[in-house]
Amino acid sequence: MKRILANALFFWLVLVISQNAEAQTGNEIIKKVNDLMNQESLFSKSKMLIQTSSGQVRKFEYDSWGRDHNEKTLIRYTSPRRAKGQAILMRNNADDIWMFFPRTNRVRKMATHAKRQKMEGSDFSYEDMGSGDSFIVDFRTTLLGTENVGDESCYKLELKRKSGSSSAYRKILIWSSKRDFHPLKMEYFENEETHPTKLLTLSEIKIIQGVPTAKKMVMQDLLDGTQTELLLQEIKYGVRLEEKMFTERGLRQ
């Protein structure tokens, strides 16, 4: 009897230890992913292609600045002419969003739940674009194992929303490269959906200033059957950005 109890205890200990090890590993990986995706500060130029409600494809170009590991993000449209100067400021990991309209020279604060909305007709939401370290703050991560994406061996991570989080996603699955931890594929699950509602594919990973960076991101809305392509044209990490840039006044400039 004692022997059985001892064996049971041993197996229980092994199970607990292995689960902890796995949880730690999952956490470690997501931390690395998070650090990689949210550098201290950055400036980038991007191109985005969206589909209008009449079925036409519209191309936008914008500059964006991120500070404090993307806790603050500023996006300013540069092209086409009609959109030039319009800007979006996201603070507190996109919990607070402001918009600037150069035609009227007015700044509008957007509703609190706006982070869940699609950002300007794209399949990216404000949350996808400016949620900072949301992977760590809003989710609990488990390492599900390893899986290949194309030829690349990846960690498969499951992120489950913590209670009280304002994230729109119930669950996110991330496949991040074992080589450099850069995510290559992400599946987003919304509240009631059992299947992923969005799929983000990251490709053309280049090392820029020592940071693996995806030059191309394609977000597919699996319910609508639409997709948005985001092409990174230029990026600089570690740029010096003033705090005042990420204020209402900074938004107007």
């Binding site: 036409q56 519209r58 009609r82 959109a83 319009q86 918009m99 309209f101 035609r103 009227t104 300007e120």
Partner: peptide
């Protein structure tokens, strides 16, 4: 001005 801003949002959002 309100309608202009609505228009700008619609343009960015592709609501033709």
């Amino acid at each position: 001005m309100n309608i202009m801003e609505m228009q700008d949002l619609a343009y960015l959002g592709g609501q033709d």
